[in-house]
Design a protein around this nucleic acid. Structure first.
Lengths: 344, 344
DNA sequence: CCCATTAATGCAAGCGGTTGCACTGCTGTC
DNA sequence: GACAGCAGTGCAACCGCTTGCATTAATGGG
């Protein structure tokens, strides 16, 4: 049915090994022979069977990409960038969605391990221990997590959270709620740690609410809790929750930003389009996708590298944050368009 | 390195063929032997190498999923549903993004053909002829396109467009602009055809603007054209364009819906969150993803089937549509929450 | 008690490629 | 003119697994 290397060999009158070399070691075959073989291959529509090749070379030219929720707008730009970058290097991408389920993550990594050259674990929910264990079975690159000995791409959300809290305290907010993300999220822990430290040193109080599902509904359902907590500002784990929260606040009769200021994280496309437009910590998702693929392809088989790529975040100030009850700092926050540099 | 069937055979003291049968033809092996083999496999962490299996069986347990733009919010819910459905049947999904490029679509199908059991072509931009040709090389299921002899899942956008136009003419709109989608889009042609016929029979005028890139920017940039056309209502190819258009209209000083009514298509998550909330033709994307996978797995190798699954659309009326300059029909459109049935 | 049947397993070919090694025929060197 | 060296190609084993066929032992019927 399908055309194989043997068909090409027969058509061009050479041995299959010569055809093979025409594709995988061209310098070993006579230019005349090569062009004849290529012509036959072209004409027959021959494409090497990658699975067969992988069987012997051990390289599949496939990459696994595992995310918690494809429908969460944070992920698609990352997936798109990763896929594009992978294809540039002639690799294909398996995408798997784990529904925020750590156990499913493990299962999927194992299921994919044999048919990929490596797996990109994006915002994993698994434990570090488990990730380390899996990295012995298949090359892994982790996005948004730091684990010694495992190559990683991390977005500097700690800095983003710090600048966000500084922005809020400068506006005069003295009690800030933090909407935590899903259990197992490194990003959520980082934000919490950094926001806590920053609030403390600014003399403000941080009220942690969560963990929560990282969705619009997750934000919507804690609106009451936020109001009850007496907070005048909120830093949400991600934009989706922030937007859901705003919905909930408005429904409860609170105004944003007059009564409550809201800051998100991610700067998904959505954030520019809601009313009020969302102030948020922008994360370089596309760059992360590209970088993760590059790392995976670069490291090849030498596991246990310590390469970590840090990508910068920046605060994008829009319309969902305003003055709080306390004194605000002299510098008019309205002047600040964006803190932070560009992703590297 | 990796544990193979031979390791398991050695550990359990049987021939590799018995191990193989333990997994792929359990009824042929003695229950005692089987449990012994399974125990060894379990203990060694053995997983069959699917690529090797595929080489001989011809079944890869992989599916290709090709979309025009992963970052377009229309696709992720479909991808998510497809991936989930595929995994239920123990299949993995290759995702490829073609950047709205028909030539790239062809290339990707060919590249994937050998390592998948079939390809899902979602909203393809290729010609019918080319799709027919490709379907002879690899089983294909097409979403949002009707081609004789090729299994398809189609959303009934024609009906959706009709109801949308009826909604607008009932509100008294006499000149409606239609924002076309990308060149090569079957959906765009369907919407245009149906909207044209409906407008004609309602005595309204349809002004076609396009083709346009199916993005927010695509909508934004034609806002001027829409205003210049004298239209008081717009049906956009998709929600993203509708939302971009609204941005553009507001920027140009027009009010929505007081001056211009806007209807989108897709009902992406975003549409509930913008202000004004978007009136739109909801398409059952998740159902389409599931159905497409099911069709692919069901048909197996018998190509050239005529199975077509039709999924219903419905008009969701929100805040972006209001009365036009002409007489509106007696029935208060405000009563109509949603036309159309539920997706099957 | 013998033979046909059947259940359980082993054997080996082969899926579509890659690759180390052997072989052939040239070239260039001394 | 003999020979080393090399370019170009063929040969065959092998990657991990499946599967048709052969083999063996156990079973049951007449």
């Amino acid at each position: 049915m399908a055309v194989t290397i043997r068909d090409v060999a027969r058509a061009s009158g050479v041995h299959i090994s010569t055809v093979s070399r025409t594709f995988s070691a061209p310098h070993l075959v006579n230019p005349d022979t090569r062009s004849r073989v290529l012509a036959c291959a072209e004409q027959l529509g021959y494409r090497p069977n990658r699975a067969a090749r992988a069987l012997i070379t051990g390289r599949t030219y496939n990459i696994g990409l595992i995310v918690a929720d494809i429908a969460n707008p944070f992920f698609p730009p990352l997936i798109k960038a990763a896929e594009s970058q992978a294809r540039k290097h002639d690799h294909h991408i398996f995408v798997a969605d784990t529904n925020e389920d750590a156990a499913l993550e493990e299962e999927v990594v194992r299921a994919l391990a044999k048919q990929v050259d490596g797996v990109l674990l994006v915002s994993p929910r698994m434990s570090n221990t488990l990730i380390e264990q899996l990295s012995r079975e298949v090359p892994l690159v982790v996005v948004n997590r730091q684990i010694a000995g495992i190559p990683a791409v991390v977005m500097d959300v700690a800095r983003g959270a710090r600048i966000a809290i500084e922005h809020l305290t400068a506006l005069g907010h003295r009690r800030v709620a933090l909407l935590g993300g899903p259990r197992g999220s490194w990003t959520s822990r980082e934000i919490r740690r950094s926001a806590g430290a920053t609030a403390r040193s600014a003399g403000a109080e941080l009220v942690v609410i969560g963990p929560n599902p990282p969705t619009e509904v997750g934000g919507l359902t804690v609106a009451e809790d936020v109001l009850r907590s007496g907070s005048t500002a909120v830093l949400a784990y991600n934009d989706l929750m922030a937007i859901g929260l705003i919905e909930g606040l408005l429904a409860a009769g609170a105004r944003v930003p007059q009564d409550v200021s809201v800051v998100g994280v991610d700067d998904i496309m959505l954030s520019r389009l809601t009313r009020p437009k969302l102030t948020t910590v922008a994360t370089p998702t596309a760059a992360a996708g590209r970088a993760a693929v590059d790392m995976l392809l670069a490291h090849g088989d030498d596991r246990r590298t310590n390469a970590h790529i840090h990508l910068q975040t920046e605060l994008v100030i829009r319309d969902s944050t305003g003055r709080g009850p306390g004194p605000h700092s002299p510098a008019d926050p309205g002047d600040v368009i964006a803190h932070g540099g560009v992703a590297s």
